[in-house]
């Protein structure tokens, strides 16, 4: 018994357990399905992971303050729709569309932050409201395809995936995900923004009493989340041919689920970016892998739900051990 405790400590955090689960799941799907083994499936999986992992890295920050951001699902679609409308219907260059999508994300993040940190709205309610607002705003636009093929501006697909002349795909977006994870891991552990994010989550009163401008750093957590939602909207637009108004609700739950599977505590104060990234990959792997082994769509949701319960249970057990 004692030995297992030591092992747990040596493992340090949930993130290595999640990494092992991720690898085990991948191997399981490869064994169970011949078609899953194809490299093209891995490329599809990566396509999907780009927007979910980027969203998860962002949303980990509000969760670590003890809050949540429910607006990122509909937000991602809304930002992609506005950017796409600018490019396709109003003749703006693609980089303007990308910039507008990201700035829009930061703006909504800032709004969330002010509602939560300054106006003291419960994060759940505040971001539920902004999720409705972004869904409505997005529905003002028409279903918008971003440029593809030979069209002007189709180059933006190369940000996440380069297609060579012989149709070979190079998923360069993976490097972006790795870079984002490393940068945000550094931000979380070695900068004030990150340290205070965790401090607010574990004890907001104490953090305030020690002279930290809690409101500012609390807002920053939501701004980071908005920035990443903005970036995820570009990843989404580059992987999916048409961005449809009115969709996106539910995507935030997959991203939040990824962060939680990765060991970010829903009570705040605990979490790692590495764990979040691995957790988000587990969710994506389930979304892609389960249909491949012949499970019908509803099983996919049931199994994901059960895995989330497991992850939250680990969180609770860890806390209990820390208490006694």
């Amino acid at each position: 018994m004692k030995k297992s405790k030591v092992d747990l400590k040596k493992l340090g955090t949930q993130k290595y357990i999640v990494l092992i689960v991720l690898i085990a799941l991948y191997i399981f799907f490869c064994i169970a399905s011949k078609t899953f083994r194809k490299p093209t499936t891995l490329i599809s999986l990566l396509d999907m992971s780009f927007y979910y992992v980027i969203m998860a890295i962002g949303v980990a920050f509000p969760i670590m303050t003890g809050g949540v951001d429910l607006s990122i699902g509909t937000g991602v679609i809304c930002y992609a729709l506005f950017g796409g409308t600018l490019v396709r219907n109003m003749g703006a260059p693609v980089w303007v569309g990308i910039l507008v999508a990201i700035i829009f994300g930061v703006g909504i993040g800032l709004l969330n932050g002010i509602l939560v940190a300054v106006m003291n709205l419960p994060p759940f309610l505040a971001t539920l409201c902004t999720s409705m607002i972004t869904r409505g705003l997005g529905s003002m636009c028409k279903a918008t395809p971003w440029p593809t093929g030979q069209q002007d501006g189709a180059w933006f697909h190369n940000i996440f995936k380069i297609t060579l002349a012989d149709n070979t795909k190079i998923p360069v977006g993976f490097l972006i995900v790795v870079a984002a994870a490393l940068i945000m891991g550094y931000v979380l552990n070695h900068t004030r923004v990150g340290r205070y994010t965790l401090a607010i989550g574990s004890n907001k009163e104490a953090t305030m009493l020690s002279g930290v401008n809690v409101k500012f750093y609390h807002i920053m957590a939501y701004v980071i989340c908005g920035l990443f939602a903005g970036m995820a909207s570009i990843a989404y637009a580059s992987a999916i041919p048409t961005v449809q108004p009115g969709t996106g609700a539910g995507m935030e739950l997959d991203a939040i689920g990824g962060a939680i599977v990765g060991g970010v505590s829903t009570a705040g104060g605990i979490g790692t970016i590495g764990g979040t990234v691995f957790g988000a990959y587990v969710i994506c792997l389930l979304k892609v892998g389960l249909p491949f082994i012949g499970l019908q769509a509803y099983w996919q949701q049931i199994i994901t739900g059960i895995i989330l319960i497991g992850a939250v249970m680990i969180d609770i057990v860890k806390k209990r051990r820390a208490q006694f």
Binding site: F82, N89, G107
Partner: peptide, 20 residues
Amino acid sequence: SLLVGCGSSTGDTAAATAAT
């Protein structure tokens, strides 16, 4: 910055709606 954020996004909205 909030105002700027809102300003630019409402501008886009109006413009996008007008275009549509």
